[in-house]
Structures are given as structure tokens and as C-alpha cells.
């Protein structure tokens, strides 16, 4: 036995993927959609699913939450949390909108900086995300403040900054070049909004990062057992800073997209988006205890949120009831998943 030589053995059959948890989440999605379909025929007298426009709206309205959820999933896998994501959306929307105003606005925030090339407002929004993400990361890595508290602080502070920025005034009249980001395209006769494409691209990149890069492997390791990760030579602080920066950047991007879609910005944008993003990740099978989670699950979880939102609107359920039912379904989805897991481990 020569243990230190390059150990080589004939290539084995490729590792079989563990898809069972994704399949069960997909089952939940299909189940919820079918329930709406049946209820649709009973109460509204039309189909829920056979409606092209609705299908594209389902994803469009959660694409911003989806973009945040991609970052949030990574944070939760490290057994952290980022409560500041929604506030970053608001601040980034304000920052980018203030640089995206058209010169027709007599009361522009920066009258000298109107009609700019859209790259500047986009960079401004991303910069806000980078900044808050870095602060989150540094607070968590360099002090012993738990992520919940650190990001609670930046959540409140960033929302305050967003209001302070224009004294609470909304920012309107954005250039068409900028609002292009929130538009739809017809691809093969199917309306595909750009925010949806951004969401799917970001999710794909997130999936690659988690599964195939060292960044991803370390993210899981830190969440699964931080002490063992440290002894294995992982610089936990440096890695956590990266993860929170990624989440901040994605929240900043979400803010840019939100402003572009609305063709305006106001300080309250993105309020409680962080909770929807956490819900999407958790419904998708990410464990708040850390070490467990997949991007595919998060994408499905995000779509489940979208289906529920448009389903309730379709059934003309009042918005107050909607929130109550949404809350119940989130809890139920996680409870079912927990039950399934505990049965599996106990056997």
C-alpha cells in the first residue's frame, strides 16, 4: 500500500445524483398549480394554466425575489441569514434611478447627470449592493455578531439611507434605455420579460458556483461544520465576506431591475422581499441549520411563490386573505419536508 503516491484506480460509473428532494418540491409545485386549476374551473369557470399571459406573469412577478433568493440560498447554506436584502433593493433602486433620469424631468436629483448611458445607473445599484454586502460580511467575519443581528442593523440603516437620499421623495421619469431592462421580448411568439431572463441566468450561475467550484464546496463545508472547516484549512472569515458580498450584489441587481420595471423608484421598494427570498429558499429545501440546499430547489421554490400569488389573484381572493394563506402554505411546505426528512433518517 503506497498511500502517498498518486492513487489512481479505473474510472468508475459517474456519481449518481441525489434528485429525490428536488422531485418532491417539483411535486408540490405541480400539486399547487393543479389545485388552482381545479378551483379555477369550479369558482371562476376558466382555466388557470391554459393562459399564456398568466404563465409569463407568474415568473415575472417573482423574478426580483428569485434574484435575491439565489444569493440568500448561499448565505443560508453557510447557516447565516441576510435580512438587509430588501432594504438593499430599496437603496439600490433609489441610487440607480437617480442616475437614470431623463432630462425632461425638471426636478431631477442630479440635474447635471441626466440622460446618462444606462451602465452608470446599473453600476450605481450594484455598488450599493457591494457596499452593504461588504459591511455585512465584515461585521459577521471580524466581530462575533450573529448574522441575524448584523444584517438586522444594516437592514434598518439601509432603509434609512434610502429615505434620506431624496428626503423621501420618489424618483421618476427614467430614460427608456434604462427601463428597457424591465421590458419583455417576444421569443418564438412567447413573451419573455428580461427580468425573468436575468433571474434564470443568475440562478444558473449560482447553480454552477455551488456545485462545481471551490467557492461552492467551501460554502457547504462552512455551513455543515465550521470548526471542521477551519481545521481543514478554510479561511472562514474571508469566505463569509465573499458570500455576503455575493448576496449584496444580487440584492443590488434586484434593486436595479425593480426600478427599471417600475420606471421609477421610491424608498419603500423591496420591503420584506428578504422574507419572500428566505421563504423561496426554504420551500426549495435549503436548511436554515446550514450545509444543505440547492439552487434548483430555490428556483422551484420561487416559482411556487409566484404560482400562489397569481393563483389567488385569479381566484379573486382578497389580498389580506392571500397573505394569511401564503403564510400557512410556507409553514406547511417546510413541515412536510421536515417530516419526510425525519422519516428518511430514522428509517
Amino acid at each position: 500500500m503506497t498511500l502517498l503516491q498518486d492513487a489512481t484506480s479505473p474510472a468508475k460509473a459517474p456519481k449518481r445524483r441525489k434528485l429525490s428532494s428536488e422531485l418532491s418540491i417539483l411535486g408540490v409545485l405541480v400539486g399547487i398549480a393543479l389545485i388552482f386549476e381545479v378551483l379555477g374551473w369550479i369558482f371562476v369557470g376558466s382555466s388557470f394554466l391554459a393562459n399564456q399571459q398568466r404563465l409569463s406573469i407568474i415568473i415575472l412577478q417573482v423574478s426580483v425575489i428569485g434574484i435575491i433568493a439565489v444569493g440568500m440560498t448561499q448565505v443560508i447554506i453557510t447557516s447565516g441569514i441576510d435580512l438587509s436584502a430588501g432594504s438593499v433593493v430599496g437603496l439600490a433602486a433609489m441610487a440607480s434611478a437617480s442616475l437614470a433620469q431623463s432630462s425632461t424631468d425638471m426636478r431631477a436629483v442630479y440635474p447635471a447627470l441626466t440622460d446618462l448611458w444606462p451602465i452608470w445607473p446599473i453600476l450605481a445599484g450594484l455598488f450599493v449592493g457591494l457596499l452593504i454586502g461588504t459591511i455585512n460580511g465584515l461585521l459577521i467575519a471580524k466581530t462575533n455578531i450573529p448574522p441575524f443581528i448584523a444584517t438586522l442593523g444594516t437592514m434598518v440603516a439601509a432603509r434609512g439611507l434610502a429615505k434620506w437620499y431624496t428626503n423621501g421623495q420618489p424618483i421618476a421619469l427614467l430614460t427608456p434605455e434604462f427601463t428597457w431592462l424591465g421590458r419583455s421580448f417576444n421569443i418564438l411568439g412567447f413573451p419573455l420579460p428580461l427580468p425573468v431572463i436575468i433571474f434564470l441566468v443568475v440562478a444558473f450561475l449560482g447553480h454552477i458556483a455551488l456545485r462545481y467550484t471551490r467557492y461552492g464546496k467551501f460554502t457547504y463545508a462552512i455551513g455543515a461544520n465550521p470548526q471542521a472547516a477551519r481545521v481543514s484549512g478554510i479561511n472562514i472569515g474571508a469566505h463569509l465576506i465573499k458570500v455576503y458580498i455575493v448576496c449584496g450584489l444580487l440584492s443590488g441587481l434586484a434593486g436595479v431591475v425593480t426600478a427599471a420595471r417600475a420606471a421609477s423608484a421610491q424608498a419603500a421598494m423591496g420591503t420584506s422581499y428578504e422574507l419572500d427570498a428566505i421563504a423561496a429558499a426554504v420551500i426549495g429545501g435549503t436548511s436554515l441549520a446550514g450545509g444543505v440546499g440547492r439552487m434548483t430547489g430555490t428556483v422551484i421554490g420561487t416559482i411556487i411563490l409566484g404560482v400562489m400569488m397569481s393563483g389567488f389573484t385569479f381566484l379573486k381572493v382578497g389580498s389580506y386573505y392571500q397573505e394569511v394563506i401564503k403564510g400557512a402554505i410556507i409553514v406547511l411546505a417546510v413541515a412536510v419536508d421536515q417530516y419526510r426528512r425525519s422519516r428518511k433518517t430514522k428509517a
Binding site: T213, R214, K217, F218, A224, Q227, A228, V231, S232
Partner: peptide, 28 residues
Amino acid sequence: TGCFLLLDIQENAQVASLRSGYVRYGFV
């Protein structure tokens, strides 16, 4: 301080080698 109990054998065995080897342009 040893096992990552939630992770599989492969993930447990590889973790210390990823710092200096088996990675090209960030990809494992």
C-alpha cells in the same frame, strides 16, 4: 472538529485538498 455529518463521503474526503489542488480557475 472532524466530520461534516451532513455531507457525503466524497465531500468529506476532498475538503482539505481543495485549498491547493484539484482546482482550475476556481472550478473543481
